[in-house]
Design a binder for these strands. Structure first.
Lengths: 212, 212
DNA sequence: GAAAATAGTTATAAAAAGATAAAATGTTTT
DNA sequence: AAAACATTTTATCTTTTTATAACTATTTTC
């Protein structure tokens, strides 16, 4: 994957991991940490830690290290987790439920404002404090309510059916759990894919290799 | 990430994607495809397609292209999807349910043989054709039944509580949805992580960048 | 049998990771 | 209080890895 405004995606994809460890350190009351220590916690080289962090500015103090709290806050800012992007969830099956219930949206820069499903049994019921709406209402909802992102927890062919209309409505940011390749059809969108079964196939490959 | 027996992980992580597109082409009755065409479908360069595939052997025919069915089968074999690794699922919450119900294990090289949860309400109920067992039975189960992999759909601290015992029982392959860093504690394990919230944070970052 | 198509292979370029040296800070000793 | 020393970042340089492009050889098609 290319870059996102100068910073390579490899670096960006490591940020959440830094953030997780720093949050942990902070909650443990650790005040400062050197690149070497952080590296050993993260299982990477100290060089990489320093270079990664230096992409965004000199957060460290020579001879001292990095202040855990400051660095955590810096990364929080870089990732923009203090945002409250308005997102709607499409699909309240098991995956949608898992997403709605387990993800701490507010600490990840989002606010879940609505959930849509086509199953009449589900419509009107509550999920994560939100009443599930009929999925055919999603367009009208997005028209009337600022919607920064759509979380797609529906199958590939269902995505195919809704994506054009969502795009027309101006939605450009997607968290996509399906195998539908949004970025290929709409190159000007921001798409984060979560392909669980790809990950499982990779696991399969690696188990084979280990057993050779 | 390093390598898995000579082939770089970057290549391996692309294989499931090749596989998906080839399966689709095959089901559409497409007989042959050139690296150029496959590349445009996959949104990569033709060079990369040829180099990726050549890591594993010359599956193509000069002047002709690749036979879709053959190539699909080759990748199936490389990934080892014809295996039937015995796996158990720990955690039957929404995420565990999503995994149990939505993932086609047999087409991904696995067979789900048992599910464990600690919730008395769930124990004894059925999920994906399997009766959920009490989670304290997992060790005995693994002792008596060949278990190639464990799918961890439980929170970080729960993983912390079970991982040592699973490791002691000889289990080395994990599909890990938690933030517990297994590979750091046990470097000789094979761990595929699915970190949904990391993906969401990356989405947040990219939305920020786009809006600048 | 010649032209076109296309994989395989080698070479180049770009990106990422890692190592090193220089500068800055903090700490200890005298 | 000053000096010496240890720590650690920053900045740069080197190596490795990954991706792309260019070239060569083979096959197909007309």
């Amino acid at each position: 994957m290319a870059k996102s405004n100068g910073i390579s995606m490899s670096v960006i994809r490591r940020l959440p991991r830094y953030y997780r460890f720093l949050t942990e350190l902070h909650s443990e009351g650790v005040l400062k940490i050197s690149s070497t220590n952080l590296a050993s916690i993260m299982n990477v080289t100290a060089s990489q830690v320093r270079q990664d962090l230096n992409c965004f500015g000199g957060f460290g103090h020579q001879g001292y290290g990095y202040c855990v709290e400051d660095l955590k806050n810096e990364i929080e800012n870089i990732l923009g987790l203090n945002n409250s992007y308005q997102a709607v969830l499409l699909g309240a099956g098991n995956l949608g439920k898992a997403v709605a219930r387990h993800i701490n949206f507010s600490e990840r820069g989002f606010q879940l404002t609505a959930i849509f499903d086509r199953d009449p049994e589900k419509i009107g019921t509550e999920l994560g404090g939100i009443i599930i709406k009929n999925d055919n209402e999603i367009y009208e909802y997005c028209r009337q309510n600022k919607t920064d992102a759509v979380f797609l927890c529906i199958p590939k062919n269902s995505v195919e059916n809704v994506i054009d209309k969502l795009y027309e409505l101006g939605i450009r940011n997607f968290w996509n759990f399906s195998h539908y390749d949004i970025a290929k059809v709409y190159p000007d969108t921001v798409v984060e894919n979560v392909h669980m079964s790809d990950s499982l196939m990779t696991l399969c490959y690696r188990i084979n290799e280990r057993q050779k």
